[in-house]
């Protein structure tokens, strides 16, 4: 393991999104704020998902997590597709990186971008909604890190697989968006008809959102340990898969 090389790649990947923070951090914060303003305003007082928690407050963890994971995904996938299309991927392929070092650097940058957006959304949301005191900050951070790890890894796979920008966009519109919207960001799945509620249990994003929300309110649809275990397993499986792809140079080398 070469720490200098790994940290340098991490630093470069972080600098990449920091240099365009308007687009990579501020824009998603504003999007989340719009959701909060519109849905929070329309549904405030009409819906109470968890007893004693206003709908606006209920929305915050879901929106936060949605922003975190979408941006973690966007970071790895857009970095890879960009450097593939521009050809600058060779600068990473020529040095003696191991697959695992590359993985760590790309995922690390995705997690940090997810966190930056998450903190941004949270700070802005505080102006809007009275957020009850958080139940367990460590669970919140843990789920945010795990969620962005998993989504960063998915983004890495998408970025390796894709050959054009619009393939990434398709991945986002047809997979990531529907799965996040149907994962209980805006509602508790217990309020769904039984069939759709049980379908939701098959949606991996549900566990991210649900576990994360438990960190805020101490209430959730699923026991938090189950969500944690599901996320951890996803992280382990995806790590193995990504490292394997990177080691064979799938669609990076030999392209």
């Amino acid at each position: 393991m070469n720490a200098i090389a790994t940290l340098t790649l991490l630093k470069k990947e972080v600098k990449r999104w920091r240099k365009v923070w308007l687009q990579t951090v501020l824009a998603p914060v504003i999007t989340a704020l719009l959701y909060l303003a519109v849905f929070g305003h329309v549904l405030e007082g009409r819906v109470e998902v968890f007893p004693g928690i206003s709908y606006g407050a209920f929305l915050i963890p879901g929106l936060l997590m949605m922003s975190v994971i979408q941006n973690a995904f966007a970071n790895t996938s857009s970095s890879l597709i960009q450097s593939k299309v521009m050809g600058s991927i060779v600068f990473v392929l020529l040095p003696p990186f191991s697959a695992f070092e590359m993985f760590l650097a790309y995922i690390g940058a995705a997690i940090l971008r997810g966190m930056a957006v998450g903190v941004g959304v949270f700070l802005v949301a505080l102006f809007y909604v009275k957020v009850p005191p958080v139940h367990d900050i460590f669970l919140i951070i843990g789920f945010a890190v795990l969620g962005s790890y998993v989504m960063g890894a998915l983004g890495l796979i998408a970025g390796m697989w894709a050959e054009k920008f619009d393939q990434i966009a398709a991945f986002q519109s047809f997979l990531i968006m529907p799965l996040t919207f149907l994962s209980g960001v805006f509602y508790s799945i217990n309020s769904l008809p039984p069939f759709w509620a049980s379908v939701s249990y098959l949606n991996p994003f549900f566990y991210m959102i649900d576990g994360f929300r438990y960190g805020f309110f101490g209430q959730s649809d699923q026991p938090v340990m189950i969500s944690f275990f599901v996320m951890l397993s996803a992280a382990v499986v995806l790590t193995g898969f990504c490292v394997k792809l990177l080691a064979t140079g799938y669609k990076l080398r030999d392209a």
Binding site: A5, L7, T8, L9, K11, K12, P95, P96, F97
Partner: peptide, 9 residues
Amino acid sequence: FQSGYFGIS
């Protein structure tokens, strides 16, 4: 960056 990739800080 390129130096760092080769482990040179």
